[in-house]
């Protein structure tokens, strides 16, 4: 493979550039995926049947913790990519690892949140509202879970193979994915939780 050295490593080969553009287009599709969930959520938001409404079950504390965790993880992965561009492999790996730990913590709080909902009578099958609430949150949570494994694999590869155009490219694309999940969360935070509690 020919390598172009005037660009950051992750853009080094033709295939690398294709991967990055392709991933952006995938993110475009993800925008529509979440938009559809949001459209459904807003439609069903007040259709609570005999179950509870959002204001009755949402708790600000876990939501805030989740938000801070995810925002910080988005920051640390940004630092990771920055370190990668400076060629500092160990710093990069550390930042990626911190990101994943923050993601894991997020997932932990989210699991707590889900059990809480089930506890207060807002399980999946209770009403249209609870169904779409948990499906939307769950879809985001599933994305984070996949991200945890994917990120782990990438750290392992960087450790073994070093920073090559290939591993740098994967790391960069992973960072795009992670930032994107943060963006989705911002919308969940604003338009599901805060709007619901307003």
């Amino acid at each position: 493979m020919k390598t172009d050295n005037s660009l950051p490593l992750e853009y080094g080969t033709e295939q690398n550039k294709l991967n990055i553009l392709g991933f952006w287009i995938f993110l475009g599709a993800e925008v529509m995926l979440f938009a559809t969930l949001f459209a459904t959520y807003f439609t069903l938001e007040h259709r609570t049947g005999s179950g509870p409404a959002g204001a009755e079950i949402f708790e600000i504390t876990p939501v805030l913790i989740e938000t801070i965790l995810l925002l910080t993880s988005s920051f640390t992965i940004g630092l990771g990519v920055h370190a990668m561009r400076l060629g500092r492999k160990n710093a990069m790996m550390t930042f990626f690892a911190v990101t994943l730990l923050l993601g894991l913590a997020f997932l932990g709080v989210e699991i707590y949140e889900f059990t809480h909902y089930v506890h207060v009578g807002a399980g999946l099958q209770v009403s249209a509202f609870t169904g779409i609430l948990l499906t939307t949150l769950g879809t985001h949570g599933a994305h984070v879970t996949v991200g945890l494994f994917w990120g782990l694999f990438i750290i392992m590869q960087v450790k073994k193979r070093g920073l090559t155009p290939e591993t740098a490219n994967k790391s960069f694309i992973f960072s795009l994915y992670w930032h994107f999940l943060d963006v989705v969360w911002i919308f969940i935070f604003s338009f599901i939780y805060l709007k619901g509690m307003m």
Binding site: M32, L124, G131
Partner: peptide
Amino acid sequence: AFPVLTVTLLLGTMDRLFGTHIFSMTNGGM
């Protein structure tokens, strides 16, 4: 367009296999 189909089918599957009430006639479904 296809992500919309993905979600629609997912929600339909949730209703049929996991007992949610997204598209049902009861419990707020539409």
